[in-house]
């Protein structure tokens, strides 16, 4: 699975305003609602589900990256977006570091394989430090889009 298969370009946020865990999740879900990828009526329920998942264990997987996610019946296919916090946010990461780079995913409950393949793609690309660094330094959503495209074309993974 490629970034282009699940990242909604209109919902990319290169400068997250949020400065705590819950508001990052809120801001990114709001971006997907605004881009009409998630129903407005489900906004709160999706935010709550993602927070509940975080309570089971942080999705801050290290290297300043987190993948907050949930399964939710309101989507028929996996949708996701990317957010960058310039200053970083305390996300109770596994390695204790602040998180600057967020991939938020909402997937249909009956498609665990798609969710796994999105995580696979994200983690495969993030193993490349250059990609990781460029993303965190990206100045606008257009630049993020470009980096994701390059990653999709295997320009980072050796």
């Amino acid at each position: 699975m490629k970034f282009a298969d699940f990242v909604c370009l209109q919902a990319i946020r290169s400068h997250l305003e949020a400065d705590d865990k819950e508001s990052v999740i809120r801001e990114m879900v709001a971006a997907l609602v605004e881009a009409r990828k998630l129903p407005e009526a489900e906004h709160e329920s999706i935010v709550k589900a993602i927070i509940k998942r975080e309570e089971l264990g942080s999705t801050g997987i290290g290297k300043g990256v987190a993948v907050p996610h949930t399964k939710h019946p309101s989507v028929e296919k996996l949708v996701g977006t990317v957010g960058i916090s310039v200053d970083g946010v305390d996300f109770n990461s596994l390695d204790g570091e602040k998180v600057q780079l967020f991939f938020l995913l909402v997937s249909p409950p009956d498609r665990p394989g798609d969710h796994l393949r999105a995580l696979e793609n994200i983690s495969r690309q993030l193993r490349d430090d250059t990609f990781c660094k460029f993303l965190k330094q990206a100045r606008g959503s257009e630049e993020i889009h470009q980096l994701l495209e390059e990653a999709d074309n295997n320009q980072f993974v050796s």
Binding site: G62, K63, L94, E120, I122, S123, R127
Partner: peptide, 12 residues
């Protein structure tokens, strides 16, 4: 490495 394990995308 969690990034390593996730890269396997190991399904049921």
């Amino acid at each position: 490495s969690i990034l390593g394990i996730l890269t396997l995308a190991a399904e049921q």
